[in-house]
């Protein structure tokens, strides 16, 4: 299964945000979107989430147009975490994660089992009974991620869309996040995420896409995208690319 778009454009007024972008996320892969602020990462993710409609081109889920799939059906296969979440009511952490299961029709007992699994897998056991609004920014983000994970935890043909999920997280939880989505990808989930940390992206992605002003300027395996020339082109920054001696992990320094 895959979600893809071919030559999708999106504009607001006269401003072209995405210019004939083609993108395919397949089951079992982690695809990272990188690019400078305003490159179009968020818009592209929102197109895939069905949150925005492109001005031309169609997003397809398998061979069906995403816009032709009912919202409830869509929510059973595509989970989307926006950049900023504005929950300001004092729900318990567990209650917030439970909301992830609303679209599924799997029954209360099964849902509770999944929620407990997600809570323990993502190191939230000690926060489970806390009130969401009393948490720190990073803790809130972990709860929101857990909600998204719970939404499709047991689902076949699951696709997760994350917009800068790790920005508020500490190093340990950034790594825990990537470890967890790695497991999900192995179980067959497709994952698309927008991310600013190039080292993390290079290390944990199967493929990367570099966007600049709404156009794809590089695409491929991390070592094909993270090159001195392409980073210079995408970010206007001069960097050094190294390979770690022991496991040849890509590292960028500036």
């Amino acid at each position: 299964m895959n979600i893809h778009c071919e030559a999708c454009s999106y504009s607001v007024g006269n401003k072209l945000i995405l210019n004939k972008v083609s993108l395919r996320v397949s089951s079992g892969e982690i695809l990272s979107l990188v690019g400078a602020n305003g490159a179009g990462k968020t818009s592209l993710i929102k197109l895939f989430a069905g949150e925005l409609q492109g001005t031309s081109g169609q997003v397809k889920f398998g061979d069906r147009a995403l816009s032709k799939i009912g919202l409830d059906m869509r929510a059973r296969h595509i989970a989307f975490l926006p950049q900023k979440s504005g929950l300001e009511f004092p729900f318990r952490v567990r209650e917030v994660i439970e909301m992830g299961r609303y679209p599924q029709l799997t029954g209360k007992v099964f849902d509770q089992k999944i929620i407990s699994e997600v809570i323990s897998e993502f190191d939230l056991v000690h926060l489970e009974d806390r009130i969401y609004t009393s948490l720190s920014g990073g803790e809130k983000q972990r709860v929101q991620i857990a909600r998204i994970l719970a939404q499709l935890w047991d689902t076949e043909d699951a696709f997760y869309l994350f917009d800068e999920p790790t920005a508020p997280l500490d190093l340990a939880h950034q790594l825990a996040f990537f470890k967890l989505i790695g497991t999900l990808a192995k179980r067959g989930a497709g994952i698309l995420l927008a991310i600013h940390d190039l080292n993390l992206a290079a290390r944990f992605s199967d493929r990367m896409i570099l966007l600049k002003q709404g156009e794809v300027i590089a695409e491929g395996a991390p070592e094909e995208v993270i090159t001195k020339e392409k980073i210079q082109m995408g970010f206007d920054v001069n960097v050094q690319i190294h390979r770690r001696a022991e496991d040849s992990v890509i590292q960028i320094s500036y």
Partner: peptide, 14 residues
């Protein structure tokens, strides 16, 4: 409950 998360979040919950 879902809409207290935000409009986008509620939409992505179907």
């Amino acid at each position: 409950n879902a809409i207290t998360l935000g409009d986008q979040e509620a939409a992505s919950l179907g």
